[in-house]
Design a protein around this nucleic acid. Sequence first.
RNA 1: CGGGGCGUAGCGCAGCCUGGUAGCGCACUUCCUUGGGGUGGAAGUGGUCGGAGGUUCAAAUCCUCUCGCCCCGACCA
Length: 568
Amino acid sequence: MRLSCFPLSTTRETPADADVVSHQLLQRAGFIRKLGAGLYTWMPMGLRVLRRIENIVRQEMDRAGAAELLMPSIQPAELWQQSGRWNAMGAEMLRIKDRHQNDYCYGPTHEEVIVHHARQDVRSYRQLPFNWYQIQTKFRDERRPRFGLMRAREFLMKDAYSFHLDAADLDREYLNMREAYARVFERLGADYRVVQADSGNIGGAKSEEFHILAGSGEDLLAVSSVGDYAANIEAAACPPSGRARPAPSLAMEQVSTPGQKTCEQVSKFLDVALAAKVKLLVAKGHEGALVGIALRGDHELNEVKAARHPLVASPFELARIEDVQAAFGCEVGYLGPVNCPIPVIADHAALEIADFVCGANVNDHHLKGVNWGRDCSLAEGTDLRRIVEGDAAPDGSGGLISFCRGIEGGHIFQLGRKYTQAMAFTVLDEQGQAITPEMGCYGIGVSRLAAAVIEQRHDDKGMRWPDAIAPFRVVVCPIGTDKSERVLKLAGQLHDELCAAGIETLLDDRGLRPGPMFADADLIGIPHRIVIGEKSLANDQYEYKRRDADKPEMIAAGLDAVLEKLGA
RNA sequence: CGGGGCGUAGCGCAGCCUGGUAGCGCACUUCCUUGGGGUGGAAGUGGUCGGAGGUUCAAAUCCUCUCGCCCCGACCA
């Protein structure tokens, strides 16, 4: 490709609305242009990268035995009503009406559509298992689009859906996809980690995320210092420590704590450790009921875990303050499990302390020396809290948890029968009995990966693409073309020869001075650069530089030495 | 959803407080110059100041409404 014929518009200045490196570089290098909040156009240079990532994903999916199809981006509401998600999905689903006032959505995901097609075409167990995937544009009306491509509203996603006779076969395919994903992430040159995840409102049991590790990542990951345990902190389990609760040593006593409402205030006021306090949150239960949630004072609630408890409404919502005050007869700063008017569930860690401090359910008063079982009923113990750094790894390896940040690039789920059942997809088994298939789904955020790779691979000059997904593998830079016919001719010739050898090559024939030319090549992040100028031609040499090398080196002029450097 | 900020040339910004003929840098056009890390110079092109209404002799500037965009937060009693 000759750059003089290729639309490329780079800027030296950083766009004002970009605050992560990938977003800045993508815009500066002219890879993407913003059209609206969370909406981006892929300009030609950027699209080349997107397509290459897409092709790696496609190759690995095909290799893993999945079959590509393409579903509409607009979906009829009827299917979503069948699965029950038309109402369950919130405002992030873009709902639209056609001219007949019929309801549609711009697909945020395609479980409903795929199950619909599966039930149309698949009747027999002989047709199972299968795995269908597409690479399709999706739209999610994020409450806050940000970080450019990392949390855009419209984005490109690979989504795959598999169907199986039984759970064991789903397990097999899940592992198959897990391996395919690992190959994808390795080919992208990404430093990634597979972590246990929560399956969110998609539903289902087993679920893992593939995270590209980066400080700018939106997700916090809990990683064990021993073994390979890692989990999204949303999903990281906090089992009982195994330590027995100490025996009560103090009598319960009510103390005055005027105006001390938060755990921090009370702990300071009474001079007790935060971890020696039990706090009580109140969540909405079912049909207007309230549920008390007891946590140790220094712990935080994990709403995802709470919402899974049968007494707690899902999605999780805190009770309205007026309702809580009506039930307890005091302000929310003084709640506690003693003489509690509503059912209480407690996090394991809150149950492991004795002689604790908690609200007295009386304004401006707390209780000291409180003990489970003796002073209040022993609440049911459940995992309700967010994991914290320094916790023991929940896999029992003896490791300690520390946090790091990641960008979710892929997510694999075992959905079970949630959708196949809701949408009445059955096949006949060998005995002629109808059975409901097990389902898995597997997503990769293709457009997000482009940004994630940049977050990991960049320097102060620009992007540093690996060969596998670079927009071009090589850029040929002729110096002083207006003075030297020979330079221009040799550069054009090398470009043509490299292209003929199947190497994606860019010839910078814009006639720029070396400074701007090199700056653009570095910004765009092309992995290999060949400079041709009279100076080196005097020694019958070209100059070769890797994007990530400090210094250039001289090589013999001609195609062979170049090919050798490229390892081609 | 709550809070804050910003909309002035393609991009980045100043001007607004204190109303009076709209400016700078980059980019772009032409010419000269320069030629190994964004040369130097000369001359140019380009703006209904986000939109609507109001105050005023006069509004980018003050007031009201509205739209768009960005940032922070989103429950821990």
